[in-house]
Design a protein around this nucleic acid. Structure first.
Lengths: 225, 225
DNA sequence: GTCTATAATCTGATAGAC
DNA sequence: GTCTATCAGATTATAGAC
């Protein structure tokens, strides 16, 4: 957008700056198209059932051409991993309860958001939180995104008064536990979803008992949505 | 072992009853050998990385011969699933604290046992509790074993006074959550193992607060092993 | 029950023409 | 950057001899 606009109409022998930008944009958009298709296929055939051939078919290429965009299948998993955690952070950070909302209500909201994010896409949940693909290890850069995501949970919880350093580890354990049991043992049902509010309260009582007891009014059995 | 011992030396044209027993026993033992090898290989190459070829090699057969014992790869997963849940039930049922042990200590013991069982074999954990193999669904008989296992948790918890019907669902969520986070995000470490006692106390306070508060002496910060 | 042979297909990945 | 051609091998599973 800034500077170099006088270079736009330069010689066509070597591509102009704008030409490079366009090419890069085109390439990025194709990469995105491939990753989108990879998510689709993973949902259809399982995460480890993803194949380069299917992937090529889905984006209208020969499988081999996909290698012009990603050097290997694991690089595609890596892009999915990074994108998944980016979505997680975005989803967890845009959480914005009314000012003055008590900790109990805030944590319940947070818990529901976490649960909904995870159960809405079991394959993504598996990739981000379970890590069960035989050969795959996220690249250092992608792993850094994951670590930042966990840190962001800590920050969010501090926003409503929970400062226990182990609280976020306990929280992720409880929330991913609810999610994985729901997905594995009652897919489509609500056997563990029903317990989300209760789990949030349980957690708050443990990591910040003062915030748990000092609630504005008695809302012991109300549900938060 | 009992009866029919007079049939042992019958005509060799049609196999004797004892001969049938021996043959059945031999067949069962080979099946077991195959399942054992399957566990081994799954631990080496991942659950979805199991192949009939490797399996045949490992038991000293051609891969094709394995089909004389199991009609398909999924039948092998099914046998592993059933065996895994049988081991789980056995492990959780032989739990036998000294009579009069308070609920807090009992639940901590139970939690550690659950955590140890799950983390000691991540592949088994994945098969029993995560169910992430693309095509595989356990057979009705095997699924019945799994359901019985969950019921047995309920019974065990009732033994030390926890009778809340949702308690076992909340408990499995918390315990599998701790396990999966440990396996996925800190393999070989103790980042979530450290939180097992705390999680057990948290759980007890939620599902049976009277048992939580009415503890014999103050052992708030002691660890149970 | 185990073997050989093989079907029929899928796998990830590379070389080189255009 | 996309293609064809192809490698080099894997996969599950079946047919039929012994």
């Amino acid at each position: 957008m800034s500077g170099n606009s006088n270079a736009v109409r330069s010689a066509k022998a070597s591509p102009s700056r704008a030409g490079l930008d366009r090419r890069a944009a085109r390439r990025a958009s194709t990469r995105q198209e491939i990753v989108d298709a990879a998510w689709q296929l993973a949902r259809e055939h399982g995460l480890s059932g993803l194949s380069m051939r299917d992937l090529g078919d889905r984006v209208g290429m020969r499988a081999q051409s996909v290698y012009s965009y990603f050097a290997s299948k694991d690089e595609i998993y890596d892009a999915m991993f990074r994108e998944g955690y980016a979505a997680f952070v975005e989803r967890m950070d845009d959480y914005d309860p009314a000012p003055g909302t008590d900790a109990r209500t805030s944590l319940r909201l947070f818990a529901h958001r976490h649960f909904a994010f995870c159960t809405s896409d079991p394959v993504r949940f598996q990739l981000l939180f379970l890590r069960t693909i035989p050969g795959f290890e996220p690249s250092p850069e992608s792993y850094a995104v994951a670590v930042r995501a966990l840190a962001s949970i800590q920050t969010t919880m501090a926003r409503f008064g929970v400062t226990d350093p182990d609280a976020s580890d306990l929280a992720t354990a409880v929330f991913t536990g609810l999610t994985s049991q729901q997905i594995a043992n009652d897919p489509g049902g609500d056997r563990w979803e029903r317990l989300v509010d209760r789990a949030a309260d349980m957690l708050l009582a443990e990591v910040a008992p003062h915030l748990h007891d000092a609630r504005p009014e008695s809302n012991e059995d109300e549900e938060t949505r």
